[in-house]
Design a binder for these strands. Structure first.
Length: 134
RNA sequence: GCAGUGGAGUGGCUUGUCGCUCGCGCCAAUAGAGCGCGAGAGGAAAGUCCGGGCAACACAGAGCAUCGCAUUUCUUAACGGGAAGCUGGGGGUGACCUCAGGGUUAAGGUGACAGAAAAUAACCGCCUGCCCAUUGCGGCAGGUAAGGGUGAAAAGGCGGGGUAAGAGCCCACCGGGCGCCACGGCGACAUGGCGUGCCGCACCACCUGCGAGUUGCAAGGUCAAGUAUAUCGGCAUUUAAGGGUUGCUCGUCCAUUGUCGAGGGGUAGACUGCUAUACUGACGUGGCAACACGUCAGACAGAUAAAUGACAAGCGGCGCCACCCCAUGGGUGACGACCACAUAACCCGGCUUAUAGCUCCACUGCUUUU
């Protein structure tokens, strides 16, 4: 598996899993993004993944579809390039579900989104490690 | 040159790093992973306002109601779209723009405020007769739409004759309507002639013609672990309530029971529908044009928590500043939160709205030079 490759199996699509994530997940904020995450037992599969994610840009905050698409692509790009930050925490048998929600009312450039993403992933990684150790 | 009118087009490019979706090939029993090659958003993809294809369901038939459309000819699969015209109104010096358009002279209704009166018009005025009476400033009866003022709209316009005063009451000219004829045009209509004194407007309702079954790809189909034994179809039979059929009426059908046959239904998911066509490009022919026909060439997104990108550099464009020149203009350099609108979701044809900058064509007005 390539270091920066982004597979379809890493996307969170199942309605049931999404409902579970938002019902029981923990929230972390680093403006302009908020991450909701939940560690679940990994489903045995021929292609194990450490984390699965989704990106949500609310229509209420960003009115035009063009801008939502652009921000979704930038956010996904930031996740793809910084995903390795989760690696130390991702123990065997654990899959982290993450939902990224957009909080800002206006669009942001890539560098600020990347900065926010790095902060979020570091926090999640630390939290998971602390849970595992004791 | 400046200002403008109408129409058409374009809608940044290149390289590097890291990626996404689909198809094909290789390796492989299959899937996944890997490698290679190829393809991958718009003129509006938008709004979802019309029309069609496609799909499922419904549908004996007749009448009424409801809704939509309404100048002519053409165009189209179809349209409430488009093209070219016609008639009338409005705007602009002009190129041109814009609004309206079946019938209603078959009967009917309404017309705020103002005004005497909103359509079988007498308030003032004008004229005639009679009465009271002192000449008058009076009263009564009648005639009159020329004049006044009101209004969005006032009984075709104007001149003459005529008259007590007046009036298409009569006549000439002009405007409109109706009928007939000639000529031009496929036609709406236009031009001319003759006849007829026939002569308010707007809206509603009404009438005429044409069209309209419902729901939308979240349509619909296939697979499917567990749960569960309901459901559907054919045939025969009974006929009361009731139910369905288009909103209503008529009409019509169903029901109940028996028997035979089928194997189904809902939920999460996967697959399918799913992209090849009223297709795209070039050329030719016909046509003022919309468009049609023919020949040749081509294959051109198919995602599904939703791919087609992110970042960097350069080029290009635009704006502004400075400098140089053979100065209308061109060149060089620096600067810039600058470079629009807007992201397919079953597919087409339109409409509407948004759109930085640039390009082209035809035309108009003003001005300058030769």
């Amino acid at each position: 598996m390539g270091e920066f490759r982004l597979y379809k199996s890493e996307k969170l699509c199942s309605k049931l899993e999404i409902e579970k994530l938002y019902a029981h997940g923990t929230s972390v904020i680093a403006y302009p993004l908020r991450a909701v995450w939940l560690a679940v037992p990994a489903v045995p599969s021929h292609q194990p993944v450490a984390a699965r994610f989704l990106i949500s840009i609310p229509k209420k905050r960003i009115r035009h579809a063009v801008d939502r698409v652009l921000l979704r692509r930038r956010t996904r790009e930031a996740y793809r390039l910084n995903r390795k930050l989760l690696a130390p925490a991702a123990a065997q048998g654990i899959t982290v579900l993450i939902g990224f929600n957009w909080l800002a009312k206006h669009e942001k450039d890539y560098s600020s989104i990347e900065h926010s993403m790095q902060e979020l992933l570091t926090k999640i990684s630390t939290a998971i490690t602390n849970e595992q150790v004791p």
